[in-house]
C-alpha cells in the first residue's frame, strides 16, 4: 500500500514524533516501499493458523499480589529531566 504525505503525517502524529514537512515526501516513499515489500506475505496460506503469541511454550508464572519494593523515589527520579519536590513534571495541561 502506498502512503501519501498526509498519511505519514497522521502516523507521525499517532507515534508522537515531530517530522519536518520537508522530510515527509522522502519518508512516504521509503515507508511505501517497505509496505509494498511486506505485502508478499499475502501469498502465504495461513488459513486455520493461530497467530503466534510466544515462541517458547511457557505458562506465565503467577506470584502473590504484594509490594516487593519501594522507598526508592530518589532513584526513580534520578534521571528525570525536570523533577520537582519528589514528582515528575510536565507542561501545564489544564488552564
Amino acid at each position: 500500500m502506498a502512503l501519501d504525505t498526509a498519511a505519514v503525517k497522521r502516523i507521525a502524529r499517532l507515534a508522537r514524533i515531530a517530522v519536518p514537512e520537508s522530510e515527509l515526501p522522502h519518508l512516504a516513499g521509503e515507508i511505501s516501499g517497505i509496505l509494498k515489500w511486506v505485502e508478499q506475505l499475502d501469498a502465504v496460506d495461513t488459513a486455520g493458523v493461530e497467530p503466534m503469541t510466544s515462541v517458547v511454550a511457557v505458562t506465565l508464572p503467577m506470584r502473590e499480589d504484594e509490594v516487593t519494593d519501594g522507598g526508592i523515589s530518589e532513584k526513580v527520579l534520578a534521571n528525570a529531566p525536570d523533577p520537582a519536590r519528589g514528582f515528575f513534571t510536565v507542561p501545564k495541561v489544564v488552564e
Binding site: 508522537r16 514524533i17 515531530a18 534521571n79 529531566p81 515528575f88 513534571t89 507542561p91 495541561v93
Partner: peptide
C-alpha cells in the same frame, strides 16, 4: 521526555512529546 532521557520543551504536553521524540 518526562521520566528519564532527553526532554525538548514544548508549548503543550503533546508538543513536548513530539519535539522530544523528533
Amino acid at each position: 521526555g518526562v521520566r528519564y532521557g532527553l526532554r525538548v520543551e514544548g508549548e503543550s504536553l503533546i508538543d513536548m512529546y513530539e519535539k522530544t521524540r523528533g
